[in-house]
Design a protein around this nucleic acid. Sequence first.
RNA 1: CGGGACGUGGUGUAGCGGUAGCACGCGACCUUUGGGAGGUUGUAGCCCGAGUUCGAGUCUCGGCGUCCCGACCA
Length: 417
Amino acid sequence: MKQSQLFAKARREAPADEVSKNAQLLIRAGYVHKEMAGVYSYLPLGKRVLEKIERIVREEMDAIGGQEIRMATLHPSEPWKQTGAWDKVDVVFKINSRTEKEYTIGQSEEEIVTPIAQEYVNSYRDLPLAVYQIGQKYRDELRAKSGIMRGREFTMKDMYSFHETQEDFDRFYEGAKQAYLRVYRRVGLVAKATEASGGSFTNKLSYEFMVLTDAGEDDILYCSECPYCVNVEISDQKEGDACTRCGKGTLSRAKASEVGNIFDLGTKYPTDFSFTYKDRAGKDQKPIMGCFGIGITRLMGVVVETFADDKGIVWPEGVAPFAAHLVSLGKPSDDVSKLASGFYTELLEKGIEVLYDDRDLRPGEKFAESDLLGIPKRIVVGKDATGSGVFELVDRKTGTVEKIERDELIARFARHG
RNA sequence: CGGGACGUGGUGUAGCGGUAGCACGCGACCUUUGGGAGGUUGUAGCCCGAGUUCGAGUCUCGGCGUCCCGACCA
């Protein structure tokens, strides 16, 4: 993509009405546009980042047998009344039509997915089943905060699974937990599987996936030696206590942001909807159900919070909007510009995702903006490149500068694909 | 929802009862080109509504909006 054609331009100053690092940087750099408190639109660069995250999530969900669907976001009120959530869950938006019919917009989708599964799961032969979607969720939060990390509208991957037995559920649950940890790793983050409350409809524990960040709104205790991690809201332990899990480490307390949550829902929803299937003996049974969420937009915010430095955003390679930022220091149609344009075409032909800064601006401005955008690698084409054919490769994270010959540079990006 | 702060051109801000100013951006022209250049010129603004006052961006009240702390958080 040519930067001269990118309609969302970076600004020099952060918006005055945002305090959170993620919102300040994402707005400044032109990734998102705020519509109102807790609601953001995603512009070309932001959309690309979301798609990167979504692709990783999709691959990992597919790998554990998830089937992707797309459920409605405008919901009838009836199933929500049937499960009790209409009255019990206070973040449910309630909408009235012109004819006074009541609707809601999805803040989660058990009320929709359970009847869908009920329609097609008639026999034990149809189980297990796992379906998921990536889509918008709406919650009537009393207070939106922290930029894109806690909004009233956000993107979530939500998966729902149905099982014959607790053993089968446990097997799938463990597989999902591992898949989640792979997702976060690929996104570039370290997430801790944290023991937490199961929410209002189950008294079982759940796992929350927590990334340590001061921008987070949860507090967790985690062991210095083993993976044990617990949300302080359900823990009687305190910082400095010995870890009861491994017996070796001590517990530290830290702020963290929840980027995923997996639940054992038991038979709550099948019960509410009278959803049964025939087991091997021909008897009616209720499936055991699980729910598995990942906050896609929140994940993006946490990545910004985690890696940004004083110059701007720093994207890990896995989620960057582009693999390379090609910055030409040439003037319109001079030799430097021609060289850069030729190289841009070649990168495109090799399938390398590149943002090409072809604008006629001063170098300082281009570098500052490049730093702000946070693309992992910057290729600078200046005067010296016209004779030598050697380009400059700058690492956004470390600032390391390498002089690399043209073909080697292409080969390097092609390898990372 | 309780508490607090704040709403001035597209963006960031100054103005504290008496002619709304600056910077950036954007348009035009000239010079400049390896870390956010300089000059000339143009462009564009007081959230909404009442009230106090000779006079309100400024004071009072009421809305609306945004952020922060708390509460809440499938």
